[in-house]
């Protein structure tokens, strides 16, 4: 997997999402995190009173023919706080960006099964996107747990 970056539009979307998730504590510029899949923009969010409020990272997963860029944010306990779709580049199947679908990931912890059709609802006609985004969340969660220091 190549490195993942953010263009201005996605960076702004990420900034708004982080502000919504973590409030004023979110920092503006991401670090570039080295993973075995390539470099990923990532944030370690410091709590205002000191300590860690959480962490977030950007990942890219394959859609039917175009990539889907997601932002995954975890709390200090390593559980998912929110998932944001920063860029969906195909014309059809964009329902993975809907809040009702993304909401089911909240509270999921690293290693928890995220099988589409069981723990995660499928969206008819968007099976590739739903499986891809679920797999993306599953591989981001342990990385974020590492960032917040959850073993």
């Amino acid at each position: 997997m190549p490195d993942v970056g953010l263009d201005a539009r996605m960076a702004e979307k990420a900034r708004l999402a982080l502000h919504r998730i973590f409030g004023a504590a979110s920092q503006a510029t991401p670090d570039l995190l080295e993973t075995k899949y390539g470099k990923r923009p990532a944030w370690r969010i410091r709590a205002q009173g000191g300590g860690i409020a959480g962490a977030a990272m950007v990942d890219e997963v394959p859609g039917k023919s175009e990539r889907i860029t997601i932002l995954v944010a975890s709390g200090p306990d390593g559980r998912l706080m929110d998932l944001e779709v920063l860029a969906y580049r195909e014309s059809y199947g964009g329902e993975v960006a809907q809040d009702a679908w993304r909401a089911q990931f909240r509270g999921k912890k690293p290693g928890e099964p995220l099988k589409v059709g069981r723990q995660i609802r499928n969206i008819s006609g968007a099976t590739i996107s739903t499986n891809s985004v679920s797999a993306g969340v599953a591989r981001c969660l342990p990385v974020l747990a590492g960032l917040v220091g959850v073993p």
Partner: peptide, 19 residues
């Protein structure tokens, strides 16, 4: 869970667009 190893945190001012 151990599948993800990250070697370093590199701090950059801005992240170049790859899109």
């Amino acid at each position: 869970r151990q599948g993800f190893l990250f070697a370093a945190l590199l701090s950059l001012g801005t992240v170049a667009s790859a899109n």
